[in-house]
Write a protein that binds this DNA or RNA. Structure first.
Lengths: 176, 176
DNA sequence: ACAACCATGTAAGTAGTTACATGATTTA
DNA sequence: TAAATCATGTAACTACTTACATGGTTGT
């Protein structure tokens, strides 16, 4: 149950409308918590009914922008959530299932698939490093900036991990 | 939609009952694809209705073990699935959301939480390394064994990543 | 024969996905 | 002014979670 809190955070950073949230998600928070616009609109409705956010005017009809802003109760809820204990969510990696399947019924097309994935991870890594160079120059930054940097660092580490792992995997798969 | 294929793989490795599957999942495949017994039983029902597995006798009543075995159609389906293209599933990491929240409304209890998580990752890493030492001695193994080793390697890499990242994060959080 | 446990299963609820619909705004 | 696009939303479905129920087996 994290989407509502992701939205609260984004709206605290900058009040905005549902469609803008969807776009912002695609660029930043979405690297770690993807959400479609349908999820976002539904959740915004819930947040409003809970009294955690309010929507500023239009009120009129469907195709008008509705800007949302976090209310004190929403801020309080976010605070409560961050201090909640949390266990690392179990990994969930389809590719590992495919490896086991390959071991049982192989050979399959896994090799091509891993190559493709490796390319995607390389692209993402390049993007992250570019963002890093742009947004986090290597001087001593403020606490808040360092926190945001940590998020990106995790992204870099993950992509690097997958590239390394893919190289190892391809070595094994090459033998067959 | 991977659970059915995870089950097919497990049943090909060794036909067994729902409860045994649940236990095996907790030890191996479950490291990368957790499933509760409710999910497993429901899915076994579907697999049977699809004609991908068959259940051997009891037939009688509720509390009796039902052993499942993969049928040719199931093996074919698994083959189809492994050759399907697959895009890396987006990351989904609640902790990154909490970091962003901390940057906006902090300070929170994040520090303690990360410490706790780091311990859990250390334990898991120790377990994986132990399994690795036991099941994959460093001589040149068969193709199938190397594939299974790759799965465990990913586990080791993930846990290592989180430990390193946590150390970095704690350095930043210590400043506040 | 009773308690504790094991194996299978049902039910209800939540989160996320996919496909589509409608009103407003912009652009050719 | 018609077409394209944008913003919001509905509906139906699937996967997963949590809580509980029932029949069988085992141990004392």
């Amino acid at each position: 149950m994290s989407l509502p809190h992701a939205l609260l955070t984004a709206l605290l950073e900058e009040p905005c409308s549902g469609s803008e949230l969807a776009r912002r998600f695609d660029r930043s928070i979405g690297f770690f918590w993807h959400a479609t616009h349908q999820q976002i609109y539904r959740e915004l409705g819930r947040l409003e009914r809970s009294g955690w956010v309010e929507s500023l005017p239009p009120e009129s009809g469907r195709g008008r922008k509705k800007v949302y802003r976090v209310l004190p109760a929403g801020r309080k809820e976010l605070k409560r959530w961050t201090s909640e204990r949390q266990v690392p969510q179990p990994l969930r990696e389809e590719l590992m299932l495919k490896l086991r399947a390959e071991a049982v019924i192989g050979p399959t097309a896994l090799r091509q698939d891993i190559k493709r994935r490796m390319d995607m991870h390389r692209q993402k890594l390049a993007l992250y490093k570019q963002l890093e160079a742009r947004d986090f120059p290597p001087d001593d930054a403020s606490y808040e900036v360092q926190l945001r940097h940590l998020v990106l660092t995790a992204g870099v580490m993950f992509e690097t991990l997958w590239i390394e792992w893919s190289e190892q995997a391809l070595k094994v798969l090459a033998k067959k």
